[in-house]
């Protein structure tokens, strides 16, 4: 049976052109505007908005002061770092010289570049591995109800209460017995354990992987591993990215563990290396280490900041998980 319709013809659909980043930002800002309650409804006194914006600017300045300082001073010689005004450049402009120095082994402490490579290695392997384990464990806790799962989960979360010293220091002794001292695996393996990651993944999976989907797949005869990889995993991706980001950052910034287990300079990550430089800079003041420390600091934080800016939406949604408390 045919049906006919009665209306004016529909307006031609807008061709969906891919959005540029600026367009997307503008659209997001407009959506924010629509989603927010209009400001005037709050009954604020005039000038409150400007006052609050000023506060934000002040705090933004406060936040950026060290970063600005590091940028300016990475271009200076040691004398100038201490001699000239901290928040502007000075002659000579030593940025590239300082940068090149990072590739050299300064006073036997080790080469910055080596440390950088180490950090990247530990962070990627450790962070990636932590994410994988957290995803599996989170899935197990979210989708299955086995004996003791609740208790086990609380124990895992409870481990956050234990001070790092209580775990890391004896770890050194354990390593001594297992010949793991000074080994990269000694750094990477413990980094695989992320209780926060398990918590976040479990929360995220509960929210985004519908139980019915899994049950339907089971009825259709799929095995559990297949279900995990083909069905659940694609749905978990945003949560995975968040946990990955947090794990990588966590390992990148880890200081205590590598401090204890590494004695070989070449295995140091950036944190330990920089700490060592800082120590030597004061004890043997001649070394001209300060420009290197500053430049090293700059190079250390730049990749992470860039990563953060690129992956903004992931840590935003991650914060959403973080605030849905226990």
């Amino acid at each position: 049976m045919t049906t006919s319709t009665l209306t004016a013809p529909d307006a031609p659909a807008e061709a969906a052109a891919p959005e540029s980043r600026r367009e997307r930002r503008r659209r997001e800002r407009r959506e924010d505007l629509d989603a927010a309650i209009p400001v005037e409804l709050y009954g604020l006194k005039r000038g409150t908005v400007s006052l609050l914006t000023a506060c934000c600017v002040l705090f933004a300045i406060f936040t950026l002061v060290p970063v600005a300082w590091i940028i300016f001073n990475s271009t200076k010689t040691q004398a100038n770092i201490f001699g000239t005004f901290g928040f502007w450049f000075a002659r000579p402009f030593e940025f590239f010289h300082n940068f090149r120095m990072l590739f050299e082994n300064v006073d036997g402490d080790g080469t910055y570049i080596t440390w950088f490579g180490n950090t990247a290695l530990y962070a990627l392997l450790g962070g990636g591995g932590a994410t994988a384990l957290a995803a599996l464990a989170g899935y197990g806790f979210a989708m299955f109800r086995f004996r003791g799962s609740k208790v086990l989960f609380y124990i895992i979360i409870g481990s956050l209460l234990v001070p790092i010293g209580a775990i890391t220091l004896p770890l050194y002794l354990v390593y001594a017995k297992a010949h793991l001292i000074n080994s990269i695996w000694g750094m990477i393996l413990p980094s695989l354990v992320s209780p926060v990651g398990v918590y976040l993944m479990r929360t995220y999976i509960r929210l985004s992987v519908p139980r019915e989907l899994i049950d339907a797949a089971r009825i259709d005869g799929a095995g559990e591993t297949r279900i995990f990889f083909k069905i659940a995993l694609p749905l978990m991706v945003p949560g995975l990215m968040t946990v990955l980001l947090l794990s990588v950052v966590g390992v990148w910034n880890n200081y205590f563990l590598p401090l204890i287990i590494f004695s070989d300079n070449n295995k140091f990550p950036l944190t330990v290396g920089m700490g060592l430089w800082s120590q030597h800079a004061t004890t043997s003041g001649d070394q001209n280490l300060y420009p290197l420390i500053v430049m090293g600091g700059l190079v250390t934080i730049t990749p992470l900041i860039i990563l953060f800016l690129i992956l903004q939406r992931y840590w935003r949604s991650g914060m959403l998980l973080g605030s849905i408390a226990n």
Partner: peptide, 12 residues
């Protein structure tokens, strides 16, 4: 901007 310090290692 406020979140940037989180990307900075404590040592640095």
């Amino acid at each position: 901007i406020f979140f940037i310090p989180f990307a900075v290692p404590v040592v640095v």
